[in-house]
Amino acid sequence: MASLDLGEPPWSVAVVDNHEAARLGVMAYLLTRPDQFGPCAGFEGLEALSAATWTPRLIVLDLYLGRDDQPTIDAIPGLREAGSAVILFTSEERPVPLRRAVAVGVSGLVLKNDGMMPLYQALVAAAKSEFTCSSIVAEALLTDPTLVAAITPRETQVLTGLDQGLSHQQVARRLGVQESTVRSHLKSVREKYMTLGRNVTNTLSLIREADEEGWLDHKA
């Protein structure tokens, strides 16, 4: 992925977070460093950001926005194409959605629990076309192979259907496959979790593990 040329500081920053306290807190912190950041503006959602008359060089973006906590992953490529480096600033600690965000172009990951200094460091790194994580935990969420089973899109569809209360037969109908194929997919998922040392004894435990990793994103 091509790096962004954000020029010299001060870099303009947009903080997009539907939690007012978080949004104002980040802005207040950045405004204490006028030699590096400015102007700074806060937005409750992406629609408000798109209506702005300027393009920020840096965007501090929460992974979920709005009353229903809609994921913002799909918007990240467009923000990057417009010339903004995006730093994900989130409470989410499920590996799958975080890895998806990195795959589509975020310039850094900062967990909200890690505080403001790591966010500052991530913003400066992003302005220099460098990727950074806010902590060892954040880095592990993106890179540790033992945290996530390699579930395929079809296996995810099977688990999602079962999570929604469908029977094996109903899932098979939805996907246009035989019921035996559904069971085969479940067997494959179980083997993947067993390889990781997970305690999976039935379909409910498979769904639980997949949900905890973020494969079953109920916010989508």
Rank of each mutant, 00 (worst) to 15 (best):
G214T: 07
A41K: 10
V60M: 03
T152A: 13
P39T: 14
C40D: 02
V137G: 05
C133Y: 02
P34E: 06
L216W: 01
A150S: 14
D68T: 11
I207A: 06
G78T: 13
Q164C: 10
P95K: 07
L109D: 00
M194F: 05
G214L: 05
L166I: 03
D17P: 08
L204V: 08
A41G: 09
V60P: 00
L58K: 06
R183M: 11
E130A: 11
R23S: 05
E44K: 08
P71R: 11
V60A: 02
A210L: 08
V15Y: 02
M116P: 06
Q70F: 10
S134Y: 00
L175K: 05
S184K: 13
R33L: 12
H185G: 02
A126N: 05
R57H: 13
D211S: 15
G161A: 11
L206C: 09
E139D: 13
G78V: 03
A172S: 13
A140Y: 01
Y64W: 15
R80L: 06
A101Y: 01
E179V: 13
L216P: 01
L109C: 08
T143L: 13
V26E: 01
L142M: 06
L196V: 07
I136F: 05
D114K: 10
G38S: 15
D163L: 05
T55N: 11
G66N: 14
L142P: 02
E191C: 02
A48L: 12
G42D: 04
A125D: 15
Q36P: 00
L123D: 02
V110I: 09
L63N: 01
H168W: 09
Q164F: 11
L6C: 09
T143H: 05
K128G: 07
L186M: 13
R100A: 12
A85K: 00
G25L: 07
A28Y: 08
F131P: 00
T203I: 14
G214N: 06
G108C: 08
R190Y: 01
N199I: 04
T203W: 10
G83C: 06
V106I: 15
Q121T: 06
